[in-house]
């Protein structure tokens, strides 16, 4: 499973920016059936969190109502430069990790 944290091209200190998160995940609802008629088990990203140097900026729990390959975007003024770390956990117990360095220019 891969994910992307998309930052604006030239993030500036003290200026509002949008951070976009895209995680590759099927987000199985548990309501679908495969070709042999067997139910496909529910498997969605239960929880995720986005940290800046260990301090949580944005976290949450997703349900089956979130589309496959979840896209999440939020606006923030980052207090300082640092590593943005995205972690997530799904129903099957799989975890994921993605990190990106955010350098704010003044």
């Amino acid at each position: 499973m891969t994910a992307r944290i998309i930052l604006p091209p030239n993030p500036k200190a003290g200026v509002k920016m949008d951070i976009r998160i895209l995680i590759q995940h099927p987000m199985e609802t548990g309501f679908r059936y495969d070709i042999s008629g067997a139910a496909i088990a529910k498997n969605v990203i239960k929880s995720f969190s986005l940290d800046l140097d260990g301090e949580t900026l944005f976290s949450g729990e997703l349900g089956t109502g979130t589309s496959a390959n979840p896209f999440l975007q939020f606006s923030v003024i980052l207090p300082h430069s640092g590593w943005l770390k995205l972690q997530w956990l799904d129903d099957e117990g799989n975890t994921g990790l993605e990190r990106v360095l955010c350098n704010l220019s003044s």
Partner: peptide
């Protein structure tokens, strides 16, 4: 939706107008 909870999100103070976007199933 069969499960009404689409997402539940927690934010730390963003210091600016909070905007959130996503794609949902209906």
């Amino acid at each position: 939706n069969p499960r009404p909870m689409i997402s539940s999100l927690q934010f730390s103070p963003t210091q600016t107008r909070l905007e959130f976007s996503s794609r949902i199933r209906l």
